[in-house]
């Protein structure tokens, strides 16, 4: 088994809808367990201290900064990463809107942005622009695709409410 610094613990949770059972040191941060043990590399390390948002994933639909979030906190919960957002091969309207609006450059911030927006749209189907800005303001994009990301989130909100999806 990998990386023993303390005693490993068994932990069960759901990842992208599928149950997993792991034996890990549950004080480890979720980001690293996702990226190494689970091979899900869509969540990125950008700062390690909660400042940038590239590591964002959803735990029971709430965005968390997985670089700061111990694995033990997901026991029995549902974790959604960018890899699990498309369903049955069909991209989520947010993903489609990001493509359509060209809302990325290097793409390193993209999964965090999309998941944060996803959680926002769950709470508020048609957020105003200032509401989107507030929700996303702690997500950094060094390529400064901000403008297009806002357009994409607005377009997706419209698509979802009009299409009656989710």
């Amino acid at each position: 088994m990998i990386g023993v610094r303390k005693m490993n613990d068994n932990i069960d949770f759901k990842i992208n809808g599928k149950p997993v059972s792991l034996s890990v040191d549950t004080d480890r941060m979720l980001l690293w367990v996702l990226r190494t043990e689970l091979g899900l590399t869509g969540a990125k390390y950008g700062c390690g201290e909660g400042f940038c948002g590239t590591c964002t994933v959803l735990v029971d639909d709430e965005p968390v900064r997985s670089c700061q979030y111990p694995v033990k906190n997901v026991r029995g919960k549902d974790v959604l990463t960018i890899e699990g957002l498309a369903s049955n091969g069909e991209l989520h309207p947010l993903q489609k809107a990001f493509i359509k609006s060209n809302a990325m450059q290097c793409g390193f911030c993209t999964s965090g942005m999309i998941l944060e927006a996803y959680s926002l749209l769950k709470k508020k189907a048609r957020p105003t622009r200032p509401e989107i800005i507030t929700a996303l303001d702690d997500h950094l994009c060094r390529c400064s695709s901000y403008h297009r990301i806002l357009q994409a989130v607005e377009a997706a909100a419209q698509e979802i409410t009009q299409g009656g999806k989710r």
Partner: peptide
């Protein structure tokens, strides 16, 4: 033209150096 890498980047499949295993 839309970006050739867009789908990879919105699905988390675009591979960066740190994603190489």
């Amino acid at each position: 033209f839309g970006r050739k890498d867009a789908v990879l980047k919105v699905t988390g499949k675009a591979e960066y150096a740190g994603d190489i295993r």
